[in-house]
């Protein structure tokens, strides 16, 4: 799951790949439409589509004599889930900060500028 999110981040990390993803967000497209919209050379676009395909972001479906590229939702879900886990980590950490602040309030000597509360043992 999270390795998938990492692959997704990496695939999206290249500006032109990101442009392709943004273009496909509006709907499936054949490669020549992508070439035209982005003003890139076809081999370049094909290379990017291959990377996007390997990361599972994009799939291709043959229609007549063309391959139509479309976005797949799952990798984006993986990013969202990973981001949520990061969010949860920070939420827990900020809760913990609140707990510490409350405990400092109860410790003697912390309200008069004393700067050496006991440090935790390892």
């Amino acid at each position: 799951m999270s390795a998938a999110a990492a692959a997704t981040f990496a695939a999206l990390g290249e500006p032109n790949r990101l442009r392709i993803v943004e273009l496909l967000r509006d709907g499936p497209r054949p490669v020549n439409a992508i070439v035209q919209a982005l003003g890139l050379r076809q081999p370049q676009v094909s290379k990017h589509l291959r990377v996007l395909g390997e990361s599972g972001l994009v799939t291709a479906e043959p229609v007549h004599r063309q391959r139509i590229y479309r976005l797949e939702p799952e990798p984006f879900d993986a990013i969202a889930e990973w981001t949520e886990s990061f969010e949860r980590l920070w939420d827990a950490r900020l809760d913990s900060l609140g707990d510490l602040l409350a405990s400092l309030d109860r410790e003697p000597g912390t309200d008069d500028g004393h700067r050496d509360p006991p440090s935790p043992r390892r």
Binding site: M1, S2, A3, A5, A6, A7, F9, A10, G13, W82, T83, S85, F86, R88, L89
Partner: peptide
């Protein structure tokens, strides 16, 4: 703001 991740990051290690 997450600005970059390792290309093959096993992100599980960090958050999950």
């Amino acid at each position: 703001t997450i600005t970059a991740v390792g290309s093959k990051a096993k992100l599980a290690a960090f958050g999950m």
